[in-house]
Design a protein around this nucleic acid. Structure first.
Lengths: 233, 233
DNA sequence: GGAAACAAAAAGTCAGACTTATATGTCACA
DNA sequence: TGTGACATATAAGTCTGACTTTTTGTTTCC
C-alpha cells in the first residue's frame, strides 16, 4: 500500500520527500517553487500543494522573497508515518531503525502492563492465538509466517493498552519488525527464548498480571536491542 | 507563538483543524472544497492547500466525486504537534492530557537512563542548574518561574538521551507541564517530594548512574499520573 | 433482474494575471 | 566611514476561469 497514485501532488511528494529526508538537500538549501514545478513537470498549484505538505511535516519552510528552505533534521516531524517510511527507505535506515527500537523498548513494556489491565476478552484471545501462531512458525525457515503473527501480536498489545498514543505506534512497530526480517540479517529461525516470552506475555495479560506482562515485554525489547548491538556494536 | 499569520491557508487551518479534532464533524462527514472556500472566503487554491495539509495529518480524506470526508479519530496522526495543540485546546483536553502523561511515564524514565550514559558536561550543568532553579521557585507561589525550569529540565533530559524520537517529545512534555500549571488545579506550591526527585535525577545523571536516574524519573512520572487520578479518578 | 451505457458531480489540473512581503542594494547625509 | 532612509527586484501568495478525470448513481435495454 505504498501509495500507488494519490494524484500528481502525491507523486511529487514521493520523490521530493525521500530526497529531503535522505539529506540530499543540506539544511538551509533553498528551492524555488517555479523551478521545482518545471523539474517535476507539474503546474505551480500542484507544486504548491506538495510544498504545503512538506511544510506541515516541518521538512521545509516557505518564506516570501527567499524560497522554500530545507529545515535541519532536528526539527522534522519524525513521528509522521510518511516521514518514517521515507527515512526507513533511505541511507540512514540503520540509525532510524535503532531510534525506533529504543522507542519500542520504552513504550511496549508499559503498554503491555496496561493491556493486562484493560484488554478485552477478544483481545486476549487474539493475543494467545498470535503467540501460538508464532510458535507454529518458529522452526523450519517460515520467517514470513512468523513475521505476520509477530506484527499482529505487538499491534494487539498496543491497542489493548487503551492509550491512543500507544495504539498509533502499531504501524511503526510493524515496520521495525518487518525491517528486521527483510533487510537485516535474520536468516536463521527466531530465538526460541523470544518465542517463549511472547507466549508468556499472552498468559500474563490474560491473567491480568500487569507487573509480569510489563517485565516479560521488557525482556523482549531488551532482546531486540541486543540484536541490534550485535549487528552494529 | 501560536501562529499569528502563516498566510491565508494557515488561518483556514487554525479554524478547520480545531473544529475537526473537536469532533464537530463526525467521522464520515463530507465537506466540499468549493463550499468551504466560500465559507472561509478564500479561493479554491488556498482551500485546496489547507485540505492537503489536513489530509497529510490523516484528519480527512479527499476523494473524487465524493468530497473531503472526515476520518475517524483512531486514524489521526496524533503525534503531529499541531494536532496535539488543537486537541489540547479543545473539549477532550483532559483525555488528551492523560494520554500524553501515560506516554511520558513510558518514555521519560528510559530517556533519563540514556541521559545518564550520554549527557555532555554542558547538559549535566544545565540539568543541575534547572533543578536548583526549581528548588528556588518551589515555595511562595512562584508557579510560573517553577514551570520555566521544570519544562527546561525535562527537555534537557530528553535531548541528552541522544535519541531523536525522545528529543522530539520535548515540546509535548512542555505542553503537558504548562497545561497542568495553567489549566488544571495547581494553586498550591509543587510537591516538595517531586522537587527533591528532580535534584536527585540531576545528581544521578551527573554521576552516570543510569539505573538510579531511570528509577527516580519513574517516580516523578508516577507522581504525575497519580496527580491526574486525584483530579479525575 | 442484471449488465451496459449514460449523465452528473466533485476533485484534480493547468495557465495566466495580479498582489504582497521582504531581502538587498543604493544613495544621501552625518 | 558608517548609518539611515529609500528604491527595486524577487519569489511566494492569491485569485479566477476553463478544462479534465474519476467515480457514483441512474437509466435503459436485453
Amino acid at each position: 500500500m505504498t501509495t500507488t497514485d494519490r494524484g500528481l501532488h502525491g507523486r511529487v511528494l514521493e520523490s521530493l520527500g525521500p530526497a529531503i529526508t535522505a539529506g540530499e538537500y543540506p539544511p538551509g538549501s533553498v528551492l524555488r517553487t517555479d523551478e521545482l514545478a518545471q523539474r517535476f513537470d507539474v503546474s505551480r498549484s500542484v507544486m504548491r500543494e506538495a510544498v504545503r505538505v512538506l511544510e506541515s511535516m516541518h521538512l521545509v519552510e516557505s518564506r516570501r522573497r527567499v524560497g522554500v528552505t530545507v529545515r535541519p533534521a532536528r526539527e522534522w516531524n519524525v513521528y509522521d508515518p510518511q516521514v518514517i517510511r521515507w527515512r526507513l527507505a533511505g541511507a540512514d535506515r540503520p540509525r532510524q531503525l535503532r531510534s525506533l527500537t529504543v522507542l519500542r523498548s520504552a513504550v511496549e513494556p508499559v503498554a503491555a502492563g496496561l493491556a493486562a489491565k484493560y484488554a478485552t476478552a477478544a483481545q486476549c484471545a487474539e493475543l494467545t492465538e498470535r503467540a501460538l501462531g508464532m510458535v507454529a512458525h518458529s522452526r523450519g525457515h517460515q520467517l514470513e509466517g512468523y513475521l505476520i503473527h509477530d506484527m499482529a501480536f505487538h499491534r494487539v498489545i498496543l491497542n489493548a493498552s487503551g492509550n491512543e498514543m500507544f495504539a498509533r505506534l502499531g504501524d511503526v512497530v510493524a515496520e521495525v519488525l518487518a525491517g528486521r526480517t527483510h533487510h537485516e540479517i535474520m536468516f536463521e529461525d527466531p530465538d526460541p527464548a523470544a518465542v517463549t516470552l511472547h507466549v508468556q506475555v499472552a498468559e500474563a495479560v490474560r491473567e491480568g498480571d500487569a507487573l509480569r506482562a510489563e517485565e516479560l515485554t521488557r525482556e523482549i525489547t531488551v532482546g531486540a536491542l541486543q540484536e541490534l548491538d550485535i549487528l552494529a556494536p
